[in-house]
Amino acid sequence: MAASDNDFVRIENPAAGVTVLVPTADIDMSRSPDLRSSIKEELKPGLDRMIIDLSEVQYMDSSGLATLVEAMRLAKKDSVGLHLASMTDKVRAIFEIARLDAFFSIKDTRQDALDA
């Protein structure tokens, strides 16, 4: 496990070329900037896959969605596979309200994201 610049996002490297970001609390306007910083910091050259594990996030607002949309664009530009994993039903609901559930690669579990 690697240290992160902020306490809100835990960084893990389960395999070579794979980085998992684990936000550890709700993602709203006050915390989205920290998530954005962590994503940009971890999108390094040589990275094959980034997984954002949302299992510890009980709430997300549109600032979180905006951060993830931006992350998806950056990942595509760098040819990094970005997967979202382990969403709670309440978090999944906002993706559906915003009709972004088809835009992202959403996996039920972190293992599914590792296997994808």
Binding site: D28, M29, D61, S62, D89, K90, A93, I94, I97
Partner: peptide, 21 residues
Amino acid sequence: GDMECSKIALALDEAMCNVIR
């Protein structure tokens, strides 16, 4: 219910974020 409460909270959050932003 739980899900609707979460969505109502989301609507409020979005409204307040718009005011702030």
